[in-house]
Simulated scan of single mutants.
Amino acid sequence: MTVVALLSVAPVREGSMADEVADAVATLDEFDVAYETNPMGTVIEADDVGTLFAACEAAHRAVDADRVSTVLKVDDKRTNDDPAAAKVEGVEEALGREARGDRE
């Protein structure tokens, strides 16, 4: 099984959150997960939901703040082991191009 999630962890405060977000992302290296950070969060891929939740909990706890906001969206497709990239490839195949638009 492959479990894919979108995780967003941030301190609740004004100003840049880059250092705290970096701490959360760096924590993921301690787990057997693949991940990619984008402007809205981090997409995480794991073999099982337990590993995914453990990694997400560690990322949440890594943010040193009085208040932390965490959003987690999980796709636990139990019928196959397709990686997260296959989801994007399917959309790109339907589009007939890359699934991105560059702003100039």
Rank of each mutant, 00 (worst) to 15 (best):
T42G: 07
G96L: 13
D29S: 08
A99I: 12
K87P: 01
G101F: 14
A94S: 07
A26Q: 11
A5L: 10
V4C: 13
V88Q: 07
T51G: 09
V68I: 11
R97C: 14
G15H: 10
D82Q: 14
K87R: 14
E36Q: 13
V68S: 03
D82E: 15
I44S: 06
A86T: 11
D75F: 10
A59Y: 01
E104C: 02
V91S: 08
F31Q: 04
H60T: 15
T37Q: 09
D48K: 12
A58N: 05
E36G: 07
G101T: 15
L6I: 08
D48Q: 12
A10T: 14
G50M: 10
M17A: 03
L52H: 01
K77C: 09
E57T: 11
A5S: 14
V68T: 10
A22L: 10
V12F: 13
A18Y: 08
F31I: 08
P83W: 04
G50I: 07
S69T: 05
G101I: 15
S69F: 13
T70W: 04
T2E: 06
T42S: 07
P11F: 02
A65P: 05
D102R: 09
S69N: 01
E14L: 07
A54K: 08
D29R: 11
V43L: 12
S69Q: 09
V21W: 02
V63C: 08
E20P: 07
M1N: 09
T51M: 04
D66T: 11
A10H: 08
M1E: 08
R97I: 00
K73V: 12
V88R: 05
E14V: 00
V9W: 01
M17G: 05
T2Q: 04
A18H: 10
A55R: 02
T51H: 06
V3I: 10
I44C: 06
A94K: 09
T51D: 06
T70M: 14
